[in-house]
């Protein structure tokens, strides 16, 4: 007599092969990211056959017709909007997170959670369109400038777009701080604000930093909203109010005009590769922070 029935054997066989199917679909994530790095990087690095790395990174002369491929103004533009949007958005987002985690009555927190989800759900073209119809004219009127397109308009829109990232991740971090720490501080006679400032915020710092870095990753890669309000002019920005460009906005404006494989097209791919490397760096930084949290 058989110890294991034929039917059961088939079941065991299924069990065995499903395991491989699961591993395969999980490994696909690694295959995809590696393929992206190889193909975007490979296409982009072809630029250096015709353009010197020094010119690409340190020259602001971008004139594809005249074979000049200096991407400095886009790199500066991207870094500037990222830093400015964090400066504008992070304090508000963090204050909102503290409010939701510790101050707001329960019913208000319950409204604010889905509200932050809705922030994420609004498409970036819609953010850009509202920026174009409200923020750009607003800047033109109140800052008394001719154009209104530029770093400030892009940073304001980005500051709004990164709010949900900062609010939701920081709020989780604040809520995760053990109650006992908070109670000890309050029992020692500290006010609520002193407790938040001296106990809660330092304990939640890794989570807060993570939220800020993720927000930076979102800001640096944002394409549509920025493209609609930054003015799309390849020049080095020397003020907050002059039209300029960022890496993604320039890619989206010019990619349609370039023949695939031309030096111009490759330079745009190289800009995409720079973006990719920046966002991967941010992931590595977040991992470092997370590892410290355990210790």
């Amino acid at each position: 007599m058989q110890l294991v029935s034929k039917e059961h054997k088939t079941k065991l066989l299924y069990d065995h092969y499903m395991r491989y199917l699961f591993i395969a679909s999980a490994s696909l994530m690694t295959i995809i990211i590696v393929t992206i790095i190889v193909f975007v990087g490979g296409q982009g690095l072809l630029t250096f056959k015709e353009v010197s790395p020094f010119d690409f990174f340190f020259s602001a002369k971008w004139d594809p017709m005249g074979l000049e491929y200096g991407a400095l103004s886009f790199i500066v533009g991207s870094l500037a909007v990222t830093v400015l949007s964090i400066l504008l958005g992070a304090p508000l987002g963090l204050a909102g997170a503290i409010f939701m985690a510790k101050i707001a009555p329960a019913w208000l927190s319950k409204i604010m959670r889905p509200a932050t989800d809705l922030y994420v759900a609004i498409p970036s073209v819609v953010y850009g369109f509202v920026g174009l119809t409200i923020i750009v004219p607003f800047i033109r009127t109140y800052f008394n400038v001719n154009i209104g397109f530029g770093l400030l308009a892009a940073s304001i829109i980005l500051a709004i777009m990164i709010l949900p990232t900062i609010v939701s991740i920081s709020e989780d971090a604040l809520r995760a701080v053990p109650k006992s720490l908070e109670e000890a501080s309050l029992a020692l006679g500290a006010t609520r604000w002193q407790t938040i400032w001296h106990v809660l915020l330092p304990s939640a710092l890794p989570g807060i930093l993570t939220s800020i870095i993720l927000a930076m990753a979102r800001a640096v890669g944002e394409t549509m909203a920025v493209q609609m309000v930054i003015g799309n002019t390849p020049q080095l920005a020397t003020s907050l109010f002059m039209p300029t460009s960022t890496l993604p906005s320039e890619i989206v404006v010019e990619m349609g005009n370039t023949p695939f494989g031309s030096a111009w097209g490759n330079a745009l791919f190289l800009m995409a590769f720079v973006l990719l490397v920046l966002s991967l760096l941010m992931i590595l930084i977040i991992r470092r922070i997370a590892r410290k949290k355990v210790i």
Binding site: A26, I32, T35, L214, L268, I283, I286
Partner: peptide, 30 residues
């Protein structure tokens, strides 16, 4: 392996969408 898969998933989540678009253009379109 697990750590690598996790790192890959997190990385993929932060790749800017314009970069994904250009990648799709190389692979699928061309």
């Amino acid at each position: 392996l697990t750590d690598l898969i996790r790192l890959s998933t997190e990385s993929l989540a932060t790749v800017p969408s314009i970069v994904l678009g250009l990648f799709g253009m190389i692979i699928f379109v061309n």
